[in-house]
């Protein structure tokens, strides 16, 4: 699994993805890790198929007993179907996930991990001295959905927003925004159901100071490409399958 450090300061952000051993018929995903001195948070830790390579990759950065927090932006299997395995591996961990999905996510098995339900208006995750904001992103695409914003690192992890489905050798950052647009169009039009939800989210995140926009699939956006993405998404009609 490819590991890319995307922020290094008082804490670290590491992006994991492009797993070469992944079966070709499952979607490629990006996982993110926020590492502080003694704790480790996994953002959208991935599907059950990905558990072993993901755990192996995390062990380059943290021991198992310091993996203390998981975050699931929503309930999809590529986001969190590995929960039952993390549940057996971790002895002292919390899952931060939409309160709305608790009864659903527990189908993956969540007995030793504490389920911390995120209310609809969002919240925070405190990781030692780092405070991460949980930004509501409902209906983008899931009806109960959150993104994670780190005001220190200026990174916004955006789940399925900004995603594109590409091959395993794809670079981790967008290099040519204009060329990248066509790789995102159908995905966003098809998976995002609501123009109103999209507008509300864009208004909300335009107020954030963002250096990197980090989706769960495909390439990340940095610098001016963040604003380019928001402008493009703002103008896009979504929910087009009906």
């Amino acid at each position: 699994m490819k590991m890319t450090k995307i922020y290094e300061g008082s804490h670290q952000w590491i992006m994991f993805g492009r797993d070469e051993g992944k079966p070709s018929n499952i979607i490629d995903t990006n996982q993110y890790v926020v590492r502080t001195a003694n704790r480790c948070l996994l953002l959208d830790p991935g599907g059950a198929e990905l558990f072993a390579p993901m755990m192996a990759a995390v062990l380059h950065h943290a021991p198992v007993d310091q993996i203390t927090d998981l975050f699931a932006s929503h309930q999809d299997p590529d986001v969190i179907s590995s929960l039952g395995l993390w549940d057996q591996a971790l002895t002292n961990a919390k899952l931060h996930a939409p309160a709305f999905w608790e009864g659903f996510l527990r189908h993956y098995s969540c007995e030793s991990i504490e389920y911390v339900g995120i209310p609809d208006n969002g919240g925070t995750i405190k990781l030692e001295s780092v405070e991460l904001q949980l930004i509501p992103a409902h209906y983008l695409h899931s009806s109960a959905n959150f993104h994670v914003y780190d005001p220190q690192a200026k990174i916004l992890m955006t789940g399925d927003v900004g995603a594109a489905i590409e091959g395993p050798d794809t670079p981790v950052f967008v290099e040519n925004f204009s060329a990248h647009v066509e790789k995102m169009r159908h995905w966003h039009q098809r998976i995002m159901p609501s123009n109103q939800a999209k507008r509300v989210w864009i208004e909300r995140v335009r107020n954030l100071d963002i250096d990197i926009l980090a989706p769960q699939h495909g390439r990340m956006f940095k610098g001016d490409d963040v604003k380019r993405f928001l402008d493009w998404f703002d103008a896009l009609q979504v929910g087009t399958a009906v």
């Binding site: 755990m55 062990l59 057996q88 591996a89």
Partner: peptide
Amino acid sequence: QKTVAYNKFELAAKLAGDAVYAKSM
């Protein structure tokens, strides 16, 4: 479920190879 977990954990330990924290697995 326990058998799947055991097999996945063993695989993770193997894949971790010489990772700094591999032994914690």
